Computed example of a mutant assay.
Amino acid sequence: MRGGIFDELGWPDWELAWREVTGGDHRVELTWQEAWPYVILGGPTTVRVLGAEGIVLRHDLRIPAGDRWGEPGYHYVDGHLLVYWRSQELGYDLRGYWHSAPDEPQPLQGRTRGSQPRRNTITLPLPGGGRTTGGGVLHPADSVVPDELPVITDGTAHWVYRDGDGDGDHGWREYDPASGTHGRRGLPRFLADLPPGESLTEHRSWLRPALSERATPAAVPVD
């Protein structure tokens, strides 16, 4: 406890990744994106993927000079990193590559939002492989980037948050990643079982796989 609570909440691997990406220069602009339970930290020329076990992937970017408009987007799927961006050469459509084939950038299909190709909502790995974005499932080598919707899971079932398409019926809905279908309104039991008289603010409520079996500053496992 010599360093107090601030040392307890520090993350040495994050600090190492930051130094590797920035060279220790606080003026360097960074991009961080999620890949639950990993975090992606990108700089102008290089990117790192971090997990509870430390830095799991280092990659030097191969984005063609002068082609990228805005910030790059990243997805980390089954040990593979997708790097993509809005391409000036392609009329600002998406272009990208998987880090295992960095010299083969190709056009990608997907939705664009201003200068940022990702919404950076939480995406979740699937037990059989792939990563669900709430709007679809992404696998290594895919050339279609699914749209992102808020997604949660109790470890078995999934739910996505829908805005109701203008009818005011917004909230969590059952979601089947295998078929991509969104079903009826519903909640995980942990969120649905509230004490009498209590109400739930759905858009601020979430449930994800625990990072460990013990409580940490980031999360507390529940049954």
Rank of each mutant, 00 (worst) to 15 (best):
G3Y: 10
I5V: 15
F6G: 01
D7V: 07
W11E: 13
P12I: 04
D13H: 14
E15K: 11
E15F: 06
A17W: 12
W18P: 02
W18Q: 12
E20T: 05
T22Y: 14
G24H: 12
R27F: 09
V28Q: 15
L30D: 11
E34L: 13
A35Q: 07
Y38W: 14
Y38A: 11
V39H: 07
I40E: 09
G42I: 09
P44L: 12
T45N: 09
V47I: 11
R48G: 03
L50H: 01
G51R: 04
E53W: 00
E53V: 01
E53K: 10
G54M: 05
R58L: 01
R58M: 00
L61I: 07
L61Y: 03
R62H: 15
A65H: 03
W69F: 13
W69I: 02
G70N: 00
E71T: 13
P72W: 13
G73V: 00
G73A: 09
Y74P: 00
Y74Q: 00
H75I: 00
Y76N: 04
V77Y: 01
G79W: 06
L82K: 04
Y84M: 06
Q88H: 05
G91Y: 08
G91W: 11
G91F: 07
G91R: 10
G91M: 09
L94I: 01
G96T: 04
W98E: 08
H99L: 00
H99K: 00
H99T: 08
P102E: 08
P102Q: 07
E104G: 00
P107W: 07
L108A: 10
Q109R: 14
G110I: 05
G110A: 05
R113Q: 11
S115K: 01
Q116M: 03
P117W: 12
P117T: 11
R119D: 10
R119Q: 12
N120L: 08
N120M: 06
I122T: 15
T123W: 04
P125W: 03
L126C: 08
G128R: 14
G128M: 09
R131K: 15
R131C: 14
T132N: 09
T132A: 10
T133M: 09
T133S: 15
T133W: 09
T133A: 10
T133G: 09
G135A: 10
V137G: 12
V137A: 12
P140W: 13
P140F: 13
A141W: 13
D142Y: 06
S143Q: 14
S143K: 13
V144E: 15
D147S: 14
L149N: 06
L149W: 12
L149D: 05
I152K: 01
T153R: 11
W159T: 04
Y161M: 06
G166L: 10
G166D: 11
G166N: 13
G166V: 10
G168F: 03
G168N: 08
D169A: 15
H170V: 00
W172C: 03
R173H: 15
T181D: 13
T181P: 00
R184L: 08
R185N: 02
G186M: 05
L191I: 03
A192V: 00
A192E: 12
D193P: 00
P195A: 14
P196F: 02
P196D: 13
G197T: 00
S199K: 01
L200Y: 02
T201M: 02
W206F: 13
L207K: 06
R214H: 11
A215I: 08
A215K: 07
P217R: 09
V222N: 02
V222L: 08
